[in-house]
């Protein structure tokens, strides 16, 4: 067992973890933050994406022990302080960027990282940045559109409701 202390969504948390405890297990099973999902075991689907020290990482491919001292943000920490949807979250709702909702937390976390790095991404840049996030429901159309809209770009020319 190793003791880790980290900040999760602004709150300091200490836990004893095994060496093989993944960050996602700490979040879901120990802390009860079940918004972060697990969709694969080969680090490709991205449903488990969280921010560690401000950068997107796959929490299924990082040990909890390595997050000692880190600032971690999960989907539960993404809404505005008053509980309303953030700009990115609101854009996903407005543009129907989610269906079953399972990949959605990872999509939102990745989108937030993209817009931090690249405030006005092109369609191509959005699609390329989503390489590590798989959605089975939407065909990505409305996810890409939502992210571009969240960046403040006019998406009205992009087809459909």
């Amino acid at each position: 067992m190793t003791k880790v202390t980290l900040t999760i969504n602004g709150k300091s948390v200490s836990r004893d973890v095994e060496g093989n405890t993944l960050l996602v297990s700490l979040l879901r099973d120990d802390i009860g933050l079940t918004g972060t999902h697990v969709g694969c075991d080969t680090s490709q689907c991205g449903a488990c994406t969280v921010h560690v020290n401000g950068e997107s990482v796959k929490s299924c491919t990082m040990f909890a022990a390595e997050a000692d001292g880190a600032e971690v943000t999960t989907i539960e920490g993404m809404a505005n302080a008053d509980g309303s949807l953030s700009v990115i979250q609101a854009a996903f709702q407005e543009h129907h960027g989610l269906q079953c909702g399972f990949c959605t937390p990872g999509m939102v976390m990745t989108a937030a990282n993209l817009l931090k790095e690249n405030p006005k991404p092109s369609e191509h840049e959005v699609r390329a940045y989503l390489e590590g996030n798989i959605c089975r429901c939407t065909g990505y159309h409305n996810i890409v559109k939502a992210i571009m809209a969240a960046s403040g770009q006019d998406v009205s020319a992009i087809a459909a409701e």
């Binding site: 680090s43 991205g46 796959k58 491919t61 990745t110 940045y129 390489e131 590590g132």
Partner: peptide, 9 residues
């Protein structure tokens, strides 16, 4: 290499 999250680790 990989995807953005992989490149962050």
């Amino acid at each position: 290499i990989g995807d953005p999250a992989v490149r962050h680790r």
